[in-house]
Design a binder for these strands. Structure first.
Length: 894
RNA sequence: GGGUGCUUAGCUCAGCUGGUCAGAGCGUCGCAUUCACAUUGCGAAGGUCGCUGGUUCGAGCCCAGCAGCACCCACCA
């Protein structure tokens, strides 16, 4: 008995399908059916636990899911490992804001322990929400292996790496100038700083004999060094001199130094330096051994170095300071239209203050001995720097980046990488595994040892040397430190787990190009160091999802698309398609609702193809005998073989959009529009058995090919196909119902019949003829119900036979009764050698346009074939191809 | 200042190693509706592939220059 089969696809059953998959255990590579040797592994880029997923997440989930499903169907041990990232600063900010909004309290009011408690509770909520969202998209990831960056196992990995790097001298503590966010009260890495162009004032101040320009007068209290260019004639006399100048807080002694860093063209060519609050000036200060005096503190307020301004917010005090200088007559002029790049915290948008601070760093240029012997052999070095190794991994091709142009960007970034500041003054995250003596004044026998920080994998409470009490560094690690270990920490490293052995390095890293530096590059660095291998073999970088106008989607702009809304409206499959079709790696895509609606239409088309075949064929064996007895049969089987081959190739080459476009064209334009229509004809002409077998076989292949892209609808149709048409007891044959899931069916191979060029060529001729007849009808406004009759003359004998054999079919599809004629003096239209005359009461009209186009084409062919240069230089195969074309043409037109 | 990408039908974009490659979807226009599907079917119109040179027998596809747009990196006191 056939079950009820709705006319339109209802995506309400998606969640049930997902449950079926999840329960089957096939998301877990260990419980997949059959013997699977070749592993495939993919680490999910862990979404931040800050909120809910956006459309960008939907995109990577779709791509990664189709990669995984394809690998699984190919018989690999496919593992897609999911997880979430604690996203230290971002998450703490969200919760802090919430606490302040609801209770008017800051984190300092409620304290560290309480804040962490609140954050953990918050994370519990967002985590489960995110997990649900991931499921709604159909993501076939192995939930039994889900990880969170703060899991104990991952913390162990973090501490292990930290200790080893510290022992190797690659992690050090140093007093250096860092990017400081006065609102987050924390350091920021170089790439956590955003720049925004801003029109601001450039002040020109008299400073002794020179005039200096500055955009930040509030940092200049202790400026005592004037820098001029050595070649600058204006200041030649002053170089090396010590001067007494009137300045902000009275007279100061200033020295003049010549250094080529001064730009003679900018402003007056002279500048003073502020070592504590400018990266460049800090380097100069180191070069000339100048003191570094802090003018602005961690709260963004002025220090005692600012004299009476002490305690005031630095930026707020700016105008007041200028006023003071004005009173002193030291303001030369103020340029109001100075365009300047303001640095901002990428999390909260607060202006960043560079200031000196004692922080932990990773040394990227320091040599260390490579532990892993195999890696030493592969890169041909015993020692290297982190930077060198990371460059080698991509240069040598051990890691491939798609698209290739990002390799250049990667090299450039890596070559210019500075030491990475990894300590953050926030509370949420991995606390740095370093301990210090509580009482720093404590002197013991081992005073030297006791003064060093203790780095430990295990928590410690007492000094291992003297037994004195110790306390842990209050700072936490940059969130990217733990995510840099993601590919291996999630697989159990540093324990020698089976997972790690089987699945690492991972096969692919799929992520957005916007986090190439933040994450991908750091994974490469850290994994090469810790594991002695690459984290992944291929990096596939997708683009960003933008709105209709090409603008970035953001909450504040309100132009975002919520994937869950779209899924509720159209189903997950159309959303998935809209995120992959028309995209190429590394390029952004524009997404809007109509696009998704378009793919909803396709999904419905697929549904009706299945509906038609399943409800109109009788029960039959699972693998029916294929007996192509008509030209159309041969044609569709050839096309099917071809599409299987094309899709497989495209999948292997990561060309997913192309794969879908080809499949789409095959499914709709070839299979549905032509073969199914012909199948209806064949059924009533005594070929029901053979036609149905081919319909079923084709449907089976089509569902398999579509499954990685549109898992829900294909699984649903597959269920109907296997339970209603194919032997229902098949499920009982081995392994129960689960084995029948499309999820684990083998990927199609080219089969049955080889690709028949002849069948395709002949069938294409028939299609052309039918299309021409339809066009003719449309152009002559013939009533669709009216059946036309006419005659047809063909000279080329092979084609003539094909057409003669299919007169009835052509007549059926074009509603025209035709007969073969030998002579044709006044054809109604001509189609590459086929002349057709239709009985129309009105005067016939042959297409002049068509004739002219044909003429041009032949002339072009003739010209090239008579060109001696073409004949001598072009490869013989090309010349032969052209010759054949001309020949075929002449034959048909004769 | 340095770099990357993009510029192909009204719109959104494909075009792999140069030899029918001028394509798709959407949109537009015309016709059709008891037959799996109006979330449909049949048909039509639309482009000198940003501009200028060059290489080649042959160029959206390679090279050079220019223009516009987008993005990334660095950051000037």
């Amino acid at each position: 008995m056939k079950e009820e089969f709705p006319k339109t696809y209802e995506h309400k059953n998606e969640e049930q399908s997902y449950q079926l998959w999840e329960k089957s255990g096939f998301f877990n590579p260990d419980t997949l059916p059959g013997v699977r040797k070749e592993p495939f592994s993919l680490s999910m880029p862990p979404p931040n636990v800050t909120g809910s997923l956006h459309i960008g997440h939907a995109m990577f989930l779709t791509i990664e899911d189709l990669m995984t499903r394809y690998a699984r169907m190919q018989g690999k041990r496919a593992l897609w490992l999911p997880g979430v990232d604690h996203a230290a600063i971002a998450t703490q900010n969200v919760v802090e804001k919430d606490v302040y909004k609801k209770e008017g309290k800051t984190r300092h009011d409620i304290g560290r322990v309480e804040l962490i408690k609140r954050i953990d509770a918050f994370v519990q909520g967002t985590r489960s929400r995110i997990e649900t969202q991931i499921r709604r998209l159909g993501s076939s990831c192995d939930w039994s292996r889900e990880r969170y960056t703060l899991d104990p196992d991952l913390s162990l990995a973090m501490r292990t790496v930290f200790k080893r790097m510290y022992d190797d001298g690659l992690i050090y503590r140093g007093d250096r100038i860092v990017n400081w966010c006065p609102r987050c009260k924390s350091t920021l890495a170089d790439d956590e700083v955003d720049y925004k162009e801003q029109k601001t004032k450039l002040y020109y101040f008299k400073y002794g004999p020179v005039v200096i320009g500055t955009a930040r007068p509030e940092t200049k209290f202790q400026d005592k060094i004037i820098i001029v260019h050595p070649k600058d004639k204006r200041y030649k006399e002053l170089v090396g001199k010590e001067l007494e100048v009137e300045w902000m807080t009275g007279k100061v002694k200033a020295r003049v130094i010549a250094d080529p860093i001064a730009d003679m063209e900018f402003g007056t060519g002279a500048m003073t330096i502020t070592p504590a609050h400018s990266f460049e000036d800090f380097l100069l200060a180191q070069k000339y051994h100048l003191p570094v005096v802090k003018i602005i503190d961690e709260d963004g307020n002025l220090t005692e170095a600012a004299g009476s301004f002490k305690g005031k917010n630095a930026r707020d005090a700016r105008e007041e300071i200028v006023l003071l200088l004005q009173k002193k007559g030291l303001v030369e002029k103020i340029d109001e239209d100075y365009v300047h790049n303001l640095s901002l915290c990428y999390r909260c948008g607060t202006p960043v203050e560079p200031l000196p601070s004692l922080q932990w760093f990773i040394a990227v240029d320091r040599e260390f001995r490579i532990m892993n012997q195999d890696l030493r052999k592969r890169c041909g070095k015993d020692t290297a720097t982190l930077k060198q190794l990371a460059l080698w991994a991509v240069r040598s091709g051990e890691i491939n980046i798609i698209p290739g142009r990002f390799k250049k960007i990667y090299f450039h970034w890596m070559e210019n990488l500075h030491d990475w500041c990894i300590s953050r003054q926030i509370w949420f995250g991995h606390q740095i595994p370093v301990w210090y003596h509580k009482n720093s004044k404590l002197k013991t026998q081992n005073s030297k040892l006791c003064n060093d920080p203790f780095v430990s994998v295990e928590d410690i409470s007492h000094c291992p040397h003297c037994g004195g009490e110790v306390e842990q560094d209050p700072d936490t690690l940059d969130t990217w430190f733990s995510s840099a270990l993601w590919t291996f920490s999630t697989l159990g490293w540093p324990k020698n787990t089976k997972d790690f052995k089987v699945f690492h390095p991972t096969s692919v890293m799929e992520t957005g190009y916007d986090i190439l530096f933040f994450w991908v590059a750091r994974m490469i660095i850290m994994t090469l160091y810790a594991v002695g291998d690459v984290p992944f073999c291929t990096v596939y970088l997708h683009g960003l999802v933008r709105d209709r106008e090409g603008k970035k989607m953001s909450k504040s702009a309100g132009n975002g698309i919520d994937p869950l809304d779209m899924i509720a409206k159209f189903g997950a499959d159309p959303v998935r398609l809209s995120l992959v079709v028309g995209t190429t790696p590394g390029n952004d895509i524009r997404l809007y609702e109509e696009k998704i609606a378009g793919y909803r239409n396709f999904v419905n088309k697929l549904w009706n193809i299945g509906r038609f075949i399943i409800t109109s064929t009788g029960e039959r064996p699972f693998a029916p005998t294929i007996d192509p007895c008509t030209l159309a049969d041969q044609w569709i089987l050839s096309e099917l073989n071809s599409i299987i081959e094309q899709t497989t190739t495209a999948m292997e080459e990561y060309r997913y959009s192309a794969a879908i476009e080809n499949l789409y064209e095959f499914t709709w334009s070839k299979f549905a529009d032509w073969y199914i229509e012909i199948a209806k004809f064949q059924r009533v002409h005594g070929m029901k058995e053979s036609t149905d077998a081919i319909l079923l076989y084709s449907l089976e292949q089509i569902l398999k090919l579509w499954h990685p892209f549109t898992p829900f609808i294909t699984e649903e149709l597959w269920k109907n196909l296997t339970t209603q048409v194919l032997f229902p007891e098949r499920g009982r044959l081995r392994g129960g119902v689960n084995q029948n899931l499309l999820l684990v069916q083998p990927w199609p191979h080219k089969a049955i019949e080889p690709y028949s060029y002849r069948a395709v060529e002949h069938f294409t001729k028939l299609q052309g003829l039918i299309a021409s007849l339809r066009t003719f009808r449309a152009e002559h406004k013939v009533n669709p119900r009216e059946k036309l009759s006419g005659a047809i003359a063909v000279h080329q004998s092979e084609i003539k036979k094909v057409i003669a054999d299919h007169l009835e079919l052509v007549g059926h599809l074009a509603k025209t009764k035709l007969e073969i004629s030998t002579e044709m003096t006044h054809p109604s239209f001509t189609l590459s050698g086929i002349r057709v005359s239709i009985d129309l009461p009105k005067k016939e009209k042959s297409s002049r346009k068509e004739r002219e186009a044909r003429k041009k084409y032949v002339a072009d062919l003739e010209r090239r074939l008579s060109d001696p240069l073409f004949l001598s230089k072009a490869p013989p195969s090309v010349v032969e191809k052209e010759r054949q074309r001309l020949k075929a043409f002449e034959e048909m037109n004769s």
